[in-house]
């Protein structure tokens, strides 16, 4: 409805979006990923005992080079005059492994998310290449956009699980990701309700719909559903604002309405049609 695949034309064929008429604006994107490895590998990486030499310095250069070459790798991606690329590493003995962050900036007509994601991913691959002689079981994982600023679609930031401990933070991000049903940790067979968000509320929450298990609610009411959502992520406190309306199975509803598994609940701002 409101979100479409801009890389498909009216016939559903791939095409490069014409950005010639979009205004130039300041854009930034931050992406992250990580490489999980054996604890001994991490120790050798930190102490410089690996056969190919300085792992992090090489991976950093690889990330920067990759950001500049994104348009050659991703078919419908524009060539961008990047004004800055920064790659940061964090050694995480608890993982154990290396956390990679890639930041890209541009004054341009299109965003730098793909550049940041490509930079993070190639930095990880280079880490793998530099260490594979001693550890072939390493895993590159959790490649994701953390935030972006600028451009027509506005700012975006990944929501974090509010109650996750640091060691679990990255793991639970997928479950706490509000964006889509697929990312939801709820098993499909679990008794749950579907919650949808519209218009300004949807944009503010960065979320179209989410599934909530009945077991997350203290009582089977819309009021309890709101409390369960707020417990899941503090951003859902927006649902408590005075003029947020609510529908149950596509009819306007009050907060004390009783819920059953499979119900569809929608929250939205006052309507402005006509």
């Amino acid at each position: 409805m409101s979100r479409t695949f801009t890389h498909l034309n009216a016939r559903g064929e791939a095409h490069m979006v014409d950005v010639g008429d979009k205004p130039v604006s300041h854009r930034e994107a931050l992406a992250s990923a990580r490489v999980r490895m054996a604890a001994e590998t991490l120790v050798r990486l930190v102490e410089g005992g690996l056969p190919k030499g300085d792992v992090l310095a090489t991976a950093r250069i690889a990330g920067i080079q990759a950001a500049k070459r994104t348009a050659e790798l991703i078919p419908l991606c524009h060539t961008l005059p990047l004004s800055s690329v920064r790659i940061d590493f964090d050694i995480d003995p608890a993982l154990p492994g290396v956390l990679v962050e890639a930041r890209c900036r541009v004054e341009g007509r299109t965003g730098v998310e793909m550049e940041a994601l490509t930079a993070a991913s190639v930095a990880c691959l280079t880490l793998y290449d530099m260490c594979k002689a001693v550890d072939k079981g390493m895993v590159v994982e959790a490649l994701q956009l953390e935030r972006k600023t600028g451009g027509k679609s506005g700012d975006w930031q990944r929501m974090q699980a509010s109650d996750a401990s640091p060691g679990q933070a990255a793991e639970s991000t997928a479950a706490a990701e509000l964006g889509d049903e697929e990312g939801d940790a709820v098993a499909p067979q679990a008794a749950s309700v579907r919650v949808r968000f519209f218009a300004e509320l949807r944009e503010r929450l960065q979320c179209d719909s989410v599934s909530v298990p009945m077991t997350d609610m203290d009582t089977t009411t819309i009021f309890a559903l709101k409390q369960a959502l707020i417990a899941r992520d503090p951003r859902f406190a927006a649902l408590d604002e005075p003029r947020v309306l609510c529908a149950l199975n596509r009819r306007m509803s009050k907060l004390d309405a009783s819920l059953s598994p499979g119900d569809e609940i929608a929250f939205f701002p006052p309507v402005t049609g006509g």
Binding site: F198, A199, E200, A247, M252, A266, F268, P269, P270, V271, T272, G273, G274
Partner: peptide, 13 residues
């Protein structure tokens, strides 16, 4: 039209 404007779930941006 009066009721549509306050009850039908349309939103304008």
């Amino acid at each position: 039209i009066d009721r549509l404007k306050t009850q039908a779930p349309f939103w304008k941006k």
